[in-house]
Write a protein that binds this DNA or RNA. Structure first.
Lengths: 194, 194, 194, 194
DNA sequence: TATGAATGAGGCTTCATTCAT
DNA sequence: AATGAATGAAGCCTCATTCAT
């Protein structure tokens, strides 16, 4: 007897369905990377070689799909967090690295910041889970930095997360040159005030 | 005695045209405020009680309309700059106020940051003029702050402008609470690092 | 026993889709006949009781639709060619009949000559296939007539086809009386020179 | 006292109005030659440096404008007829030249054949006058050729005119190569039959 | 469950012509 | 008489999403 699916899952999920789902996520990831998260759902389905219906069966809307893609690729971020932990660097250095990783992740796909931001407002968004995790991690690093006196005490993890999001969005403009891309995180770290 | 038409004055804009144009701008402003800058052009025309053609005669595309709306409401910002100058506060205080004003302005309408950002890349955008002015002003305040040693020397006005834009975008999410809205400019000013 | 699906038959077109497509073609045919080939795509969709999207799914552009309509009604022409062959008439009589049939076909719908003409220039047009077939057939009949010495040797099938097209266009004017309609092919056959 | 305008012309037509009219005709001619008769009325007005209203005051619709342009340039054709007469060539040669001239004239502007054809059906068209004149001339040449036994007797001038129109239309397709352009009038003269 | 057809609102734009100034 | 602004009906086409098969 196979491991029973947790709770009362009506059915053990057909193998091919699971395969399909994974396939879609992979394809979507590739297309997001190439054309941004605004690619038409149809084209994703077509690229994956499945019908639009199948796509929608697995992911009732774009947000869900994005969430799935992020989840599938989120581990990298979490691993990054672990790596930072392991590196045993100073708390501010750790936070710095984390924020940088966060920014990179947010820039992973053109247009990604938009739905990520939406998740902050829309409690029902499927991205909430992912976001929460990231915010929590941010909080954790921030907290450490604050306790060691390296970070301002009046900042919340969520605010820093939002700040990083805004920086990512700004850096994501078509013609952003290196300088622009550099300056955003720098401002986030030090502000303009001397 | 009225001023005689100078030389080959092409004929002053018709009164009704001017009225209409102003009307459209007003209506657009209202709709932008209510529904964001993405409202359909058609609906703006309808709300203004003019034909779509009239709208397009005055503003061949959305960017132009946004530019006009911003121009009509931009003076506030310039006035703000003057007011800051007059207040005679310290350079860093001045810059702080300016950035705050900038942020508020960028948040004026839902979705405004997007076209404003686009203007940075698209030299042909009708918003460049406005943006340039704002960037210049930012530069000016920043410069003063830098010379007085209150602002980091390695920042360009444009970067700060972009940073403010990103912050505005992030803070512009529907349910941004006061705290979030506060934190953005604060991060911009001081960053998280202590 | 029905034919088993061969290999990886992509799945036969859905019945309802086929029905819909056919319906659209029929409706389009009727509307072309009534209002000419310039009727708006939207109105065709509406008349067929389908959404604009459905229309565009089947026929991404007007040319495709026209091609489909012609195809559905083209067989008559091919049959006509066969009938002429079977009639066993003299080559010049055969060519004459063919050109007449061609002319009638080209006059089927108001405005049809235009896209047919366009297909001659635009290699990518979906009408090229049909046109090519017709030109080939024209060539065939012409060739026979030429070999039997009944047709001028310095004419190409394509030229004759184009001539017939021009005649059809000219004769296709709203109020063309019988005489006008008669004279066109006659000129094509004998010219004005005695 | 200037020559009184014929009939009871309400007013001797302002000089500037007359100048304007002529200007518009000239500009329209140029634009027709460059972009075809389908150029937007607005652009014609703009090019002429007059308001759309002025354009419409002189020519209430496109057909009228085309008529005026053709009239202004029609003399060439009539002169051609005279020249042919004077050349004292044989009737069939004369007709041949005339038809050629006709064809050239019809091809003067992209899209011209369309409104010219329309005039044949629409008795109220302002082009009727011009057309009638041309048809009459065609008739005259044809008649001479017929009387001298060089042209088929069962053709009417109008039919030949229509034939020439169709040929012009066919020859006017974008990619018409020299051969096509040659073949049309040739068919008109001799048909395909040997 | 997978498929892919169908929906249909909605976006943008053009231009012939009319009309207020 | 001249101006050029205003009209507004069409036209074309695209997707996100639903639903019949």
């Amino acid at each position: 007897m196979p491991t029973p699916p947790d709770q009362a899952a009506p059915r053990p999920t057909r193998t091919d369905a699971r395969r399909n789902r994974a396939l879609i996520v992979e394809v979507a990831e590739r297309m997001f990377a190439q054309e941004g998260v605004d690619v038409s759902m149809d084209s994703i389905a077509k690229s994956a070689g499945v019908g639009a219906g199948t796509l929608y069966r697995h992911f009732p809307n774009r947000a869900r799909l994005i969430a799935a893609v992020l989840e599938a690729h989120g581990p990298n971020l979490i691993e990054e967090a672990v790596a930072i932990d392991r590196a045993g660097v100073a708390p501010d250095e750790a936070l710095d690295r984390w924020v940088a990783a966060l920014g990179e992740w947010m820039c992973a796909y053109d247009g990604l910041p938009e739905p990520v931001r939406a998740a902050l407002s829309d409690g029902g968004s499927p991205l909430v889970a992912t976001c929460k995790q990231l915010i929590d991690t941010t909080e954790r690093f921030l907290d450490a930095a604050q306790r060691s006196g390296h970070a301002r005490a009046d900042i919340r993890g969520r605010d820093l997360y939002v700040g990083a999001l805004g920086a990512a969005w700004a850096a994501g403009m078509p013609s952003a040159d290196g300088t622009t891309r550099e300056s955003a995180p720098q401002l986030l770290r030090q502000g303009w005030q001397r």
